[in-house]
């Protein structure tokens, strides 16, 4: 199998077969990112998938040899998603962050009515159709700046540092958005999973 750097050199010279080999290494990851970020909008996800690689092929002469191709492709795809959903920018509403906690207010530790445990394990829950639909709907309602971070970190499995490189953010900003995004999703899934 040809090395990635050899395929990049050939692709830079306009060899579409070499670029097709590069696509094969990343297309499932890019498609899954697009599918999850364009929650419930499969046609948009297909457009992002195609546009990512068409844009990459055009911009490949500017790709620096010391860069990571996967990170670069994720960045192109994330930008394309962001452009589509930029109208949804803003902070997600997370009730727990916006109300005074009873424990702090009156010293009473009995705040159990606030939280309900979820009976099923994640594996069982993840198989449930209703829950999958709830995840998709909740992701769709999460503002794009937070949705991208949650998808890159928790669905695509990137580290905080890799996500920061893709999004050109500090690690602290990634962690902050990830936390708020997770709290938003926890709140939404609570209605289904509890």
């Amino acid at each position: 199998m040809e090395s990635e750097s050899d395929l990049i050199i050939k692709s830079k010279q306009g060899n579409s077969d070499a670029f097709s080999s590069l696509i094969s290494r990343y297309e499932d990851k890019i498609f899954n990112l697009a599918h999850k970020v364009c929650a419930g909008m499969p046609a948009e996800a297909e457009d992002v998938y195609q546009e990512t690689f068409l844009t990459a092929f055009k911009k490949l002469p500017h790709f620096r040899a010391d860069s990571n191709l996967g990170t670069w492709l994720y960045r192109i795809a994330s930008n394309l998603c962001w452009m589509r959903f930029r109208k949804t920018r803003g902070e997600p509403v997370v009730p727990i962050l916006d109300r005074t906690h009873p424990h702090d207010e009156d010293g009473n530790s009995d705040h159990s009515p606030l939280w309900r445990d979820w009976s099923d394990g994640p594996e069982e829950l993840a198989r449930k159709k209703a829950l999958r639909e709830a995840v998709e709907a909740a992701l769709g309602d999460l503002p794009i700046d937070y949705r991208l971070i949650v998808v890159l970190r928790d669905i695509q499995g990137l580290s905080n540092e890799e996500t920061a490189q893709v999004m050109k953010l500090s690690v602290a900003a990634v962690k902050s958005r990830l936390h708020r995004g997770r709290l938003f999703l926890r709140d939404r899934l609570d209605k289904v999973a509890a």
Binding site: E27, D28, F31, N32, H35, K36, A45, E46, Y49, S112, L114, W115, R116, D117, W118, G121, P122, E123, L125, A126, L131, R132, V135, V150, D154, I155, G157, R182, L183, L185, R186, L189, D190, A193, A194
Partner: peptide, 22 residues
């Protein structure tokens, strides 16, 4: 404890979302 469990399960549910392929 309950809240942490549900946040952990939220992360687990996201990690176990079925992968979409073209």
């Amino acid at each position: 404890i309950t809240f942490i469990n549900t946040l952990r399960k939220t992360k687990g549910i996201l990690q176990r979302q079925p992968k979409a392929v073209p």
